[in-house]
């Protein structure tokens, strides 16, 4: 199979792929100056990178074969955790966001305990149903969470002073963009290294044949737990960041089907089995939706995502990433 050999080949980077990667990196670095600085294109790309991180976090589960429809539970818990800590504790957002992530990770542990035996479609259904638990509790615990009114007045990400230079993420969209770019790159490299490590191989064996993996010495239960914790923690962090970006959280906003769906769509479109797939999906699809479709259909533009998921699974189930890799291999050999 062509794609198989391509996979081997790219491990030892070809000149073409190095050139493409550096060109891509420079493009992303200079994006704010290429477009109107801080304009809609810059903001759309910021959010695309943000959703790329969300998709990467989701894809950790998918790498293990667990297709989740309920990641918005982690997202919402992260958002609420960070927002409420800021509201009651007046802490720095950069401190509360990881704490929100830990709250998400805690729910991930609960998933592991409760859904330990579920795989495939039953797991997906259970994850979908599990969203309602934190959502309804937060919705009804009005004295603490303000119920369906939500938490408002959440402070934006606090500025950081580097020497004499002030990085103000709340006010300056270009600074925010670069924060997201750095965060995404860091996460992406971490993800790539993790997948190539033994741990990554263990995750892969569980996806391909769990019984065989167990009888070859892979600790399936522990690896599943680690995967859920990582994925939930990162999704929770994304939720926390989102709360500070928006300045408000409410149950319907952060526990929405849309947030569960987006990372799934982006990962499937970009390629679930490549480390860069989710990010690729995000930077292609999200701006397409926000910039092009949103102006055409102000309401209901997200129909694009549904359409894309159906088309991708029917036509090239491996996703864009695998397809591109094949092209790249053909071009470089």
């Amino acid at each position: 199979m062509g794609e198989d050999k391509a996979m081997k080949r790219v491990r030892t980077p070809t000149r073409l792929s190095v050139a493409l990667l550096s060109a891509g990196f420079l493009l992303f670095l200079g994006w704010p100056w290429l477009t109107a600085r801080g304009g809609i294109h810059c903001q759309a790309m910021s959010m695309a990178l943000f959703h790329g991180c969300l998709a990467l976090a989701w894809n950790i589960c998918s790498m293990m074969g667990a297709v989740s429809l309920g990641h918005t539970a982690f997202f919402g818990l992260g958002a609420y955790g960070s927002a409420l800590l800021c509201h009651y504790g007046h802490l720095n957002p950069f401190l509360t966001i990881p704490l929100g992530g830990i709250l998400g990770a805690f729910y991930g542990v609960l998933w592991h305990i409760a859904f330990g035996k579920l795989r495939g479609a039953p797991f997906a259904l259970a994850s979908l149903a599990s969203v309602e638990i934190p959502k309804v509790i937060i919705d009804n615990w009005e004295s603490f969470t303000f119920g369906s009114l939500g938490v408002v007045g959440i402070p934006p990400l606090s500025p950081i002073r580097v020497g004499s230079f002030m990085l103000d993420f709340g006010e300056n969209p270009v600074h925010l963009y670069h924060l997201f770019l750095v965060g995404t790159l860091f996460l992406c490299l971490l993800y790539r290294q993790a997948l190539r490590s033994r741990w990554g191989w263990a995750v892969r064996t569980i996806r391909e044949d769990e019984t065989a993996a167990a009888s070859l010495g892979v600790n399936v239960r522990r690896t599943r737990l680690q995967v859920f914790i990582c994925s939930a923690f990162l999704t929770g962090i994304c939720g926390g960041v989102y709360a500070h970006l928006m300045g408000l959280v409410e149950p319907a906003l952060v526990f929405s089907l849309h947030i569960s769906a987006l990372p799934l769509v982006l990962s499937i479109f970009g390629g679930r089995f490549q480390w860069y797939g989710p990010l690729l999906g995000a930077v292609v699809l999200y701006p397409l939706d926000q910039v092009v479709f949103r102006s055409l259909f102000p309401v209901g533009h997200s129909a694009l995502y549904g359409f894309v998921v159906i088309l991708t699974l029917m036509l090239f189930p491996q996703g864009m990433g695998a397809w591109l890799q094949k092209r790249l291999h053909l071009a470089s050999s």
């Binding site: 297709v67 259904l125 799934l264 129909a303 995502y305 549904g306 359409f307 998921v309 699974l313 029917m314």
Partner: peptide, 11 residues
């Protein structure tokens, strides 16, 4: 399941 989930978003 995933495809009909996409259909859900679409519809």
């Amino acid at each position: 399941l995933v495809i009909t989930f996409g259909l859900v978003l679409l519809l």
